[in-house]
Amino acid sequence: MTIILDPGASLAHDIADPGPDAGELAGRKIAIRIDMLWRSWDWVSEIWAEALRAEGAEVTFWRSCGRTGEEGEQADREYGALLAQSDMAIVGLGNCGSCTSWTIADALTAAATGIPTIAVATAHFEGLANNLAKRGGRSGLRLHVLPYPLDILPKEQVHDIARNHYRSFLRNFGVRSGLAEQSAA
């Protein structure tokens, strides 16, 4: 009998649980991971940060830049230090192939510390984000999906999108607040 050997590899052990809910916002430290690629994510996250601060949270931004070589090692140390002093993490933006890869990698790092974590991607890259999370061993990773295309829109329009998505974002993140529990408009 001829035996054909399998050239492929199997998936890592999977965690389907989304991890802890974000819960209350007041008095909590929230890390928002932004990047050097997407101005639209800067615009969305500044609206969300303003709203989170209004609910009593303390928000810290961290910008992901070069992730290879010495610069990358330094970035990993900075990001790890930020996560160590944060109560929850918002990680974006998956809006291309490589940036979705890094967004999910950074979200998985945050989730692995046990803090409530949510990744953010645009609709075109939702499938990639879910695939990478699954292949990274955490298919349950929370993901909030923004419209696509996003980065070609003017700032005012992106701000409107951020405001319109804020409530559903809170729900996806498991936030307990009056606003999150209101039904969508």
């Binding site: 992730r67 290879t68 070589g69 990358g72 291309c96 192939g97 490589s98 940036c99 979705t100 890869s101 890094w102 990698a105 990639l128 990478l132």
Partner: peptide
């Protein structure tokens, strides 16, 4: 090698 960023390279739109 982590310097090569194969994760990003394998996923990119490029």
């Amino acid at each position: 090698d982590s310097k090569f960023d194969l994760a990003g390279l394998n996923a990119t739109t490029g």
